[in-house]
Simulated assay, not measured.
Amino acid sequence: MAPHTRARVREVIDRLGYRPDPVARALASGHGDVIELVVVDDATVFGSSPYYGRVTAGILQELAGTNSQLSVHVVEKPDAAALLTRIADTVSAGVVLVNVAPALAAEFHARCERVVAMSPSAPGVPFVGVENAEGAYAAMVHLHETGRKRIAALHGQEGNPCAEGRRKGHQRAVRDLGIPDVAAAGKFRREAGYELTQRLLAEEPELDAIFVACDLMATGAMQALADAGRRIPEDVAVVGFDDSVIAACSTPPMSSVHQPVEQMAAAATRALVRRQVAPHWQRVFPAELRVRRSSAA
């Protein structure tokens, strides 16, 4: 390109405020792949939930030092199918799915095998996950062994694979321990934890422990207990699930089942970048209960 032509192009670029897209540049040059992260949720929730930040961090950790790029798509349910259709036609290294309904994940997988879901999904769809049922079971046993008699559980919404797994662990503990099945369900949101705990306290005045299937929901439960004048753990013990940063930063620090989200996201990314994903590929991580003051004996 002649010097005067280059100068003219630069002038136009500066006037338009153009900035190159590193993802598009990597693809055009053939020097990099793109991992597409597709999250089906409200954008506000994406920005406030520790889980999504941990997924993103795990992917970026795996891509560090490579020519691969991350492209993030946050979409609400009505628009998810159209987005995935577009991505299926242009996919590069692969796609990581979060909160995508199993039926939609299966439809996408039929068109593009380079995909990993961040939880169990439709049969055949590759996924990474955690021992949800085992983690929930350990939380319930811990509460029972510390002398709690009236243990409730707050579950996530129906249809969510993680919520379903944790519900199964709670129900198995109810059967094995011979304790009442006291439970309520709602979305994995702080507001839901608050409202459901208020309802449980009204219905179960003898409640002395709560297992909450999500740390974010558990913070709402702890606030509801505080507003009701219930001390944690003296009056009501609390155990969450995820072991996100908010668990250690709660007052008192919250016991929680550790879910290695960053490692899970990194494993999904690594398998996609190395072209190791095939139908039925999966990797399940152990769940470990980490006890803090919110459920101390």
Rank of each mutant, 00 (worst) to 15 (best):
P286L: 00
R283H: 03
R270T: 14
P253V: 02
R275A: 05
S255L: 02
V284N: 05
S255F: 01
A266V: 05
P260C: 03
P260M: 14
S256R: 03
P286V: 00
Q263P: 15
Q282M: 07
A267I: 06
A266Q: 02
A271W: 03
V257R: 00
S256C: 09
P253F: 03
A267E: 04
Q276Y: 08
F285G: 07
R275W: 01
A278D: 14
Q276S: 13
S256V: 01
H258R: 14
V261M: 11
H280C: 13
V261G: 05
E262P: 09
A267F: 03
P286K: 03
Q276R: 07
F285N: 05
R274A: 14
T269A: 01
V284S: 09
R274S: 14
P279V: 09
Q276F: 06
P279G: 12
R275V: 05
Q282L: 06
P253S: 04
R274W: 12
S255Q: 04
R283Q: 08
V273E: 11
P252F: 01
H258N: 15
M254V: 07
H258A: 15
L272Y: 06
H280N: 15
A267M: 07
P286W: 08
P279W: 04
M254K: 03
P253M: 11
L272W: 08
M254P: 04
A267V: 06
H280M: 14
A265Q: 13
M264S: 01
L272Q: 02
Q282K: 10
